[in-house]
Design a protein around this nucleic acid. Structure first.
Length: 410
RNA sequence: GGGGAGAUACCCAAGUGGCCAAAGGGGGCAGACUGUAAAUCUGUUGUCGCUGACUUCGAUGGUUCGAAUCCAUCUCUCCCCA
């Protein structure tokens, strides 16, 4: 067992938000090899950075010799977790959920070591879907006080806006999951984002009531910016771990452009850089903090997309913003030589390059002086791009300050 | 089951027969400033064959020269009573 307690590591890095029994959990993690679980409901076809934070915790725990169970919520996704939402989740079909679950499984396998039984992946649809309603009520339902549930934080906002019975049941399902894993695998601890606190203690209490045994829970800080907004969201949606949905370059840029005040938090939570170094890097002020941001961006991208992609993203960023590195790495599109022969309208090219979602917006961007072709501002919306604009078969198209696209002729 | 309120663009929210592609705010985008940051200020924010045309105000059908606005039916949400 590691000499340094993983509890202290998690605490020092700022993960821990709430713990059921602080001292006991600390002792437990110091003295025993603990089996614990974190659940992931497959509500989308890719994980996002919020999930990544959970995976970092798992990773820290695994490094310390504990055994993670990744619980894919194929069953709970059929119901929908109301925690932390103001609106009702829309019902998902079973096919969607199964598809998403497959995507999750693939992605998670990259982050956690499942070799030699060092970790486990299970899907709660295996036991939830075949539950018998009346039996479930008699065995599990009796232990839950509606009065208490109604006072739980996770239902507060929904009590004002509306909460359907199906979502109200979510807590019971998640609590049952914990019980199931406790029985099957002696899983004694559940971890999760802080919005999961109510659901986690639901399980802890259920185990105490049914099994007369002590189980533990711990929640982590949610990835929020220093202004309290959810991190990992951009104009175009979430920051996904799937490179098809968020390219490694975009991913890199997201962290590269993080707010100064969030640098320390991100370095601590999303990289394995030692805390001494984290503190040193984030103590930089003014322009120098950019050094820390570059390291953050590189490290996180490396963890998620691998070293090669991280280097490519870094070189691309250097080429665009620091006039070094190499432009080859800049993400781009290819156009056929025949398309260029007769010329292609700039606005069409902007859309094709994905720099603007529609031609109207492309026109607007041009009119507002936000479009550059090879670093030269173009303000004519009728401008036609032709072979003359290319050098060595490529040109650089830019929209706004930092949205680039390298266009190559093939 | 009875009664009431409501559904408007990415979100919140005004508009209750033509002056409405639809006020205002948030968010987004662009410009200035900068450190590829933040804050601030300015502009912009349905689409397209763009000085014009087309589609949009829960859905469908109707009244009208003309509907987000009136009528009918339907779907969904919330509140009160049972």
């Amino acid at each position: 067992m590691n000499s340094v307690n993983v509890y202290d590591i998690l605490q020092e890095r700022g993960f821990i938000e709430q713990v059921t029994h602080e001292e006991e959990v600390r002792e437990l993690l110091r003295n025993e090899k603990v089996t614990f679980y974190i659940g992931f409901d497959p509500t989308a076809d890719s994980l996002h950075v919020g999930h990544f934070l959970q995976l970092m915790v798992m990773s820290h725990m695994q490094r310390a010799g504990h055994k993670p169970i990744v619980l894919i919520g194929g069953g709970t996704a059929m119901v929908g977790d109301p925690s932390g939402r103001t609106d009702m989740r829309k019902m998902m079909t079973r096919e969607q959920i199964e598809h998403n679950a497959e995507c999750f499984k693939k992605q998670i396998s990259k982050f956690i070591d499942f070799s030699n039984g060092r970790a486990l992946m299970v899907d709660n649809s295996d036991w939830l879907l075949k539950l018998n309603y009346v039996e479930f009520l008699r065995e599990i339902g009796v232990h839950f006080s509606v009065n208490r549930m109604l006072t739980a934080e996770c239902f507060k906002s929904r009590l004002e806006r509306g909460l359907s019975f199906i979502e109200f049941n979510y807590m019971l399902m998640q609590s049952y999951d914990f019980l199931e894993l406790f029985r099957k695998y002696n899983c004694r601890m559940q971890m999760g984002g802080n919005d999961q606190w109510s659901n986690i203690i639901g399980g802890v209490e259920l185990i105490r009531r049914v099994e007369g045994a002590e189980a533990y829970g711990m929640t982590f800080t949610l990835l929020t910016t220093s202004e309290g907004k959810k991190m990992g969201k951009t104009e175009s949606g979430a920051i996904w771990l799937d490179p098809e949905k968020t390219s490694p370059y975009e991913f890199y840029q997201y962290w590269r452009n993080i707010h100064d005040n969030d640098v320390e938090k991100c370095l601590a939570l999303l990289t394995f850089i030692p805390m001494d170094e984290v503190r040193r890097l984030s103590s930089f002020r003014d322009a120098r903090i950019n050094e820390a941001k570059k390291i953050l961006a590189y490290e996180v991208t490396k963890l998620v997309h691998g070293e090669e992609e991280a280097l490519k993203a870094q070189r691309a960023a250097e080429a665009l913003f620091e006039n070094k590195g190499d432009a080859e790495s800049v993400p781009g599109i290819e156009v056929g030589a025949d398309e260029i022969k007769d010329g292609i309208k700039l606005v069409d090219l902007l859309v094709k390059a994905g720099l603007t979602p529609s031609k109207s917006e492309a026109r607007r961007a041009v009119q507002q002086g936000g479009v550059y072709l090879n670093d030269e501002k173009i303000s004519d919306i009728e401008y036609v791009v032709s072979a003359g604009n290319f050098s060595e078969g490529a040109l650089m198209l830019r929209r706004g300050k930092k949205n680039y696209c390298r266009v190559r002729v093939v």
